[in-house]
């Protein structure tokens, strides 16, 4: 029986952009690539193999795919971005999943997790 050839496993990250401006998909994609290139170079960029799967310019939300072995590096690169088109910006990763379907399902689910209460720092 022939086994299906398995490529590198992928991770899908949903992210939210916090900024005053609105940006086109191309701008966001280039910024992410540049971020990875700056921090990890050509080798890192090729290993991460990032691809912007979808992006909503109105909501400033998107989904990025990357190699599972470079997830931490991609996260760091997204955190490293501080401006887009001259405007102060930060990118927060909301959720990570191994499949696109699971990520989208969790995003559309409208359950609210109970928010943890204030840190109970004990005073002896």
């Amino acid at each position: 029986m022939k086994m299906a050839a398995r490529g590198v496993r992928r991770r899908y990250l949903s992210f939210q952009i916090l900024s005053e401006g609105r940006f086109k998909e191309k701008v966001v994609e280039e910024a992410i690539m540049r971020g990875i290139l700056t921090l990890y170079g050509m080798k890192g960029l090729s290993q991460a193999n990032p691809q912007l799967i979808e992006y909503d310019a109105e909501e400033k939300k998107g989904i990025l795919r990357c190699s599972h072995t470079q997830l931490r590096q991609v996260r760091a690169s997204l955190a490293y971005i501080t401006n887009l088109e001259g405007l102060s910006t930060s990118i927060n990763v909301k959720r990570v999943s191994g499949t696109l379907r699971a990520l989208r399902r969790r995003q559309t689910q409208s359950f609210t997790r109970p928010t943890p209460s204030t840190t109970s720092i004990s005073v002896p």
Partner: peptide, 8 residues
Amino acid sequence: MLMRGPRE
């Protein structure tokens, strides 16, 4: 804008 989440 300069704040980042714990995982980041």
